[in-house]
Design a protein around this nucleic acid. Structure first.
Lengths: 188, 188
DNA sequence: CACCGCCTACCTGTGAAACGGTAGGTTTCG
DNA sequence: CGAAACCTACCGTTTCACAGGTAGGCGGTG
């Protein structure tokens, strides 16, 4: 599937440009004209590939889904999670895109709201599974995987905001590793 | 100071309305007309009290500063923090306002960016202070207060997003209490 | 108390820009 | 030749903001 037709290539270019513009201005602030200009198109030329602005957003979100579906279908380990954070720390643009979208998505009738709601439910499940694989039914702290999973996700997101706002003073990968210590170890 | 002149009352009304509209549409999506209508004014009438949209945002942020400055100047305890989360869980609107603003603020040239950067630096300090008062130089896990503080803040924010997106399935106060267990106790 | 002038709090009117989207023509390429 | 890719032209709406007018309360003065 997904033959590399000329059209598909163009669409991929546009989606990448949209990621950038959304990172800079958010979804509401991202104009079709700005995205179009970045790939050397007019706004109407862009609308030929994506009939509405919302269709473009959907494509962006789908791109993201394929993005972390690649690490061989949700069979991570704790170590990989830490290195994922390190990887993210080298790509502020992409982190910024989805942090901005997450923030917007809590507002009413936002077109990404359903996506994020579903996604976080699913990510929490994945994380609970991962924690169970790592620690069994009880973490060293006594929490169940289902209790710890939302905290793990919250730390990932929360650290991203602090880091995006002040990358000089917030060591995201280091902080996350500290959290893993918190999860895994009992008083030294 | 701050005599309750007619003007000050009006401004307070407007700020409250702005909080609501921002919660629903974000800052970029919040139109002056929508805020004005909510207090029974025209958009131009509103601009008499706040000369620009940005001035209104500044007033909203200042309101927030006074908001949690009231708990007797940063002398909280861990217990109070948990009950603050419970309190927030009863006021989704206000949480939504500032979660939406935080999300937007990571985009370029956002007028609230400086505010949030400063605020988070200061909140991390406050939290480190609080943790030190509670646990001394080392938490049970071995982390220093300065290492744990960003994690505490991250959990607070991250949980808010998960809860706003899916209040039925995310028990924010409960999850936060679990985090306090993680911070304070060693395996049961 | 009557009058007057002024300042505050609004209003109407207007504008320029940006927005997403439609319609329809033209080029390019297989 | 036919379809896909892209453009020009346009439209209606919404946005923040400016300009200028008006109504009403309030203080001072005769």
């Amino acid at each position: 599937m997904a033959a590399k037709t000329r059209s598909d290539q163009r669409r991929a270019e546009i989606v990448r440009a949209a990621l950038e513009v959304i990172a800079e201005r958010g979804y509401r602030g991202a104009s079709l004209a700005a995205v179009a200009e970045r790939v050397g198109l007019t706004q109407q030329g862009l609308l030929h590939h994506f009939p509405t602005k919302e269709a473009l957003l959907v494509a962006v979100l789908e791109e993201r889904d394929q993005w972390d579906a690649t690490p061989s279908a949700r069979e991570w380990r704790m170590e990989l999670l830490a290195s994922l954070v390190e990887y993210n720390a080298m790509r502020p643009a992409i982190v910024q895109t989805f942090s901005a979208l997450l923030g917007e998505s809590v507002t009413e009738d936002h077109p990404a709201r359903g996506y994020f709601t579903r996604r976080y439910a699913s990510v929490r499940e994945d994380m609970a599974r991962l924690l169970r694989a790592e620690y069994g039914e009880r973490l060293p702290s006594g929490l169940t995987p289902e209790q710890a999973a939302p905290l793990l996700v919250a730390v990932l997101d929360g650290l991203q905001y602090q880091w995006l706002l002040d990358p000089e003073n917030v060591d995201m990968p280091g902080a996350f590793r500290n959290f893993l210590v918190l999860l895994g170890e009992q008083g030294s």
